[in-house]
């Protein structure tokens, strides 16, 4: 299935285990802030555990996105960008809170988000600066669902951005098996625990 989310909107979609969800930037200033809820509707994306288990401060291909309970939620199987922000969060828009409410979820289910297509650069003193023009039209990232997921996407502009929000295309289809190469042992353990 395919769906284009306009800028400044919010959307939610179930993604079954073994399916792939591909996001595509429809404009240079696209930002897709994603929340991920696991199959039991309680377990959810845990950015700190995802980062410290894989020794990274950014989201890129070859990472497993992990839950509070140490389970693989999704694998980042491909990305045209080597940096998607996950350190600067997102203010939940009223539209995003409505999407949560449609699934019986609320503020208590908020968690650290991934801001796909956004880069907030880090300097030597760990000060941050928004990087304009990071994503170009057509930039894409693909996640393979490792369990049945509920995915929330807000296309509100990143809080540090100075331009209006662009849209994001979403396509959900069959995932390729195997890969990606280079997963760390921690990521393989998180995958093993959901299989």
């Amino acid at each position: 299935m395919k769906h284009d989310i306009p800028g400044d909107a919010a959307w939610s979609v179930p993604v079954r285990a073994g399916r792939a969800i591909t996001l595509t930037a429809l404009a240079e200033n696209a930002n897709a802030s994603m929340l991920i809820i696991g199959s039991d509707r309680l377990d959810r994306l845990n950015i700190p555990d995802t980062l410290k288990s894989q020794m990274t401060a950014r989201i890129h291909a070859g990472l497993v996105l992990m839950s509070d309970r140490g389970l693989a939620l999704a694998t980042v199987t491909a990305s045209t960008l080597d940096w998607h922000d996950c350190l600067t969060g997102s203010i939940p828009s009223p539209l995003l809170l409505l999407e949560l409410a449609k699934h019986g979820l609320s503020e208590a289910d908020l968690h650290g988000s991934i801001n796909f297509f956004t880069k907030v650069g880090i300097d030597a003193d760990a000060r941050l600066a928004f990087v304009p023009g990071h994503a170009t039209v057509g930039a894409s990232v693909t996640l393979r669902a490792e369990q049945d997921l509920l995915v929330f996407i807000s296309t509100a502009p990143h809080v540090l951005a100075t331009t209006p929000a662009g849209g994001v295309g979403v396509q959900i289809g069959a995932a390729e098996a195997g890969g990606p190469a280079g997963l760390r042992p921690e990521a393989l353990r998180a995958l093993e625990l959901v299989r």
Binding site: I47, L87, T88, G89, E107, A108, G112, I122
Partner: peptide, 18 residues
């Protein structure tokens, strides 16, 4: 208690990690 600490909103607000 639904109005709770947010690590990444805190980082963004000060535009610094530590």
């Amino acid at each position: 208690i639904d109005n709770r600490y947010s690590a990444f909103d805190t980082i963004r607000a000060q535009q610094a990690v530590y």
